[in-house]
Write a protein that binds this DNA or RNA. Structure first.
Lengths: 105, 105
DNA sequence: CAATTACATAAGCAATGACTTATTTATCCG
DNA sequence: CGGATAAATAAGTCATTGCTTATGTAATTG
C-alpha cells in the first residue's frame, strides 16, 4: 500500500473520524458507527469500503451484523513516510530506534 | 494547525511531491520546483500556497525569485495524531514524545 | 414463509479541487 | 526607461468525491 492511498483515505474528516472511533473503541458494527457519524448509513458503508481498500480496517461478519475494527498496521506507510521526509523528525526517529533497540536488549 | 489540514494538504500526490523534494533537497525556487513537477508554474504556485497555509513550507524572497523550504515542524499534527490513534504504533510514538521532551531540555 | 433488520450497492447531484491559459505584479538588466 | 524574467493571481473547465434517496441482498424472527 502506498502513502498516497493512506493520505487520501484519511484526508476526509468523516472517514478519519470512523477510523478514530474504531481505534479508540475497538470493534463496532455499521449501525453503531452510523450513530454519531453525522451521515447516513450508506455513507458510512462507503467510507468503510474506502478504509478497507486502504487496509486501514478489517471486518468480520456475525450473522447479519458486520463488525469493523481498526488495522493499525495499515498506518505503516505513514510511519515510513514520516521517517523518510520528516527530516527534523527523522533524526529523532533514528534516536528513537536506537532507544528501542537498547530497550529490546 | 489541525490534523485535518495536514492530511488534506498532503493527500494530493503532486503537492506531496513538492514537499518531498523540499525536504530532500533543501531550498528551491518555484522555477526549480516547476522543472520536474509535471504541471505548470501556476499549478506549482497554487500547491505551494496550500502547503504554506498548512504550515508545511516556508518562503524567503530573494529579488525576484522566491526560495521555498520544507517546515518539518508542520508535521507535528501528524505525529500527534499517530500517537493518539496508531494504537500498535502508539507505544513507540509515546516513547518518541518522551524522548523529544527530554531532548528539548 | 412473510416481515424485519443489517448492511451493501446503484444512481444521481452538488461541491470541491486540481489543472489549464491568460493576465498581473514585481524585479532585474541592457 | 523598456524588455525580459520570476512568481502570483484570475478565471474557467473537467474530473473527483462525498453525500443523498432508492433499491438490492442476506440473515434473523414471529
Amino acid at each position: 500500500m502506498e502513502p498516497e492511498d493512506v493520505f487520501r483515505t484519511l484526508a476526509d474528516g468523516t472517514r478519519r473520524g470512523l477510523f478514530e472511533r474504531l481505534a479508540r473503541e475497538g470493534e463496532l458494527s455499521v449501525s453503531a458507527l452510523t450513530a454519531g457519524a453525522g451521515v447516513s448509513q450508506p455513507a458510512v458503508s462507503q467510507h468503510l469500503k474506502a478504509l478497507r481498500l486502504a487496509n486501514l480496517v478489517g471486518e468480520t461478519r456475525h450473522g447479519r451484523t458486520v463488525l469493523y475494527r481498526a488495522n493499525p498496521e495499515g498506518l505503516r506507510p505513514l510511519v515510513d513516510w514520516m521517517a523518510l521526509y520528516g527530516r527534523f523528525w527523522a533524526a529523532r526517529f533514528d534516536a528513537l530506534e536506537d532507544l528501542l533497540n537498547r530497550m529490546d536488549q
